[in-house]
Amino acid sequence: MDIIQALALAVLQGLTEFLPISSSAHLILLPVISGWEDQGLVFDVAVHVGTLTAVVAFYRHDLYRIINDWLGSLLGRGLTEDAKLAWYVILGTIPVGLVGISLPDPLKEALRSPLVIAGATIVFALLLWVAEKWAREQRSEVTLLDAIIVGLFQAIALIPGTSRSGITITAGLLTGLRREQAARFSFLLSIPVIALAGLLHVIDLAQSSEPVQWDLIVVGASVSAVVAYLTIGWFLKLLEKIGMLPFVYYRLILGAVLFAVFLR
């Protein structure tokens, strides 16, 4: 892997991790278009660390309150709204963890088929369109029921092409959350999910003899962190102005391109 590939993959990961457009669809299409070889497990870990750093940094003030109040609830100091939100994030993470552990490796490999990714990209774009069209946007506070529903939907994101942020925001809109709150809860949910995914990568890495290109690792982690941080802020502002429909159209086009490429 050279510096151009590292930069391109880091920017792509930073952009697509939090936008509702499916990072897996983009990461499978880029090597096909460019003819690049697989970037390797070490680099995957690096860009995951980058995107995790970005979301933690973006919500650092919120996370301080949430964690502080959650610890307070454990010590009997009462259950504030931020403490409830912490419990809801934990609850919402359980389904994807259980399903991820339960999926057999052959099924995981089968789901990585380009045609599965193309189909999921289109199907869940249409579901996002339905959620956007019929969104009531009545509430700003996440409830226990929201956490359960969004958490169950998040488990679907184990199908590559679904988009973790896309499916969780879709679920939030369907439950009646406002766009900004659905996106915020989706991004908070991403913290344990990305951390767990990174941990699994590290475990795999510990069993691998893959050589480490430390200069490219640092570049990948740094660039993906900066791009992801900027993307979160840009996306939240964009939601207020134009909603989710541009991402629906983009996903439909992307899915069609994937089918055209891999059905040849």
Rank of each mutant, 00 (worst) to 15 (best):
S24D: 14
V99G: 00
L263F: 09
S24V: 02
F124D: 04
A120I: 04
F124R: 00
A131N: 09
P104M: 07
R65M: 06
D38M: 01
E210C: 03
T170W: 08
L196S: 14
L205G: 09
Q207D: 12
D105N: 06
A197H: 03
V123G: 05
L128W: 13
L71S: 02
I159R: 03
L199S: 07
G198V: 01
L85P: 00
Q181M: 15
F153M: 14
T16I: 10
R112T: 06
F259I: 12
V32D: 15
L27D: 07
V218E: 06
S23D: 03
V96F: 00
D38K: 03
S186T: 13
E17C: 03
Y250V: 10
Q154Y: 09
L236Q: 05
A25W: 10
R251G: 06
F124V: 06
D62C: 07
Q138T: 11
I217Y: 08
E37D: 15
G14P: 08
G255F: 04
V123C: 07
L245W: 09
P95T: 11
H61C: 04
T121A: 11
V89G: 01
E132C: 13
I90F: 15
V226H: 05
L19V: 14
S73K: 01
A155C: 04
E180W: 01
L173Q: 02
Q207F: 11
G151H: 08
D215W: 04
V219G: 04
S163R: 01
I33E: 12
V123T: 10
K108Q: 10
V193E: 01
L85Q: 00
A10S: 11
L75T: 11
F124W: 14
E37Q: 14
A157G: 03
G35N: 09
R178G: 15
T175R: 15
L144D: 05
L258M: 12
S102R: 00
L189W: 10
G92W: 08
L71M: 12
V47M: 08
L252V: 13
P192Y: 11
P104D: 08
A120M: 09
D69V: 04
L79A: 09
L126W: 12
S73G: 12
I3M: 14
V116L: 07
L145A: 04
I159P: 15
G151E: 13
D215N: 10
G198M: 05
K84T: 06
E81Q: 09
G92H: 06
E210G: 05
L41Q: 10
L9R: 01
V226F: 06
I169H: 05
V56G: 01
R251Q: 11
Q13I: 03
F187G: 07
L196C: 08
Y59I: 05
L254N: 11
R136F: 01
H26D: 02
V45G: 04
L205A: 14
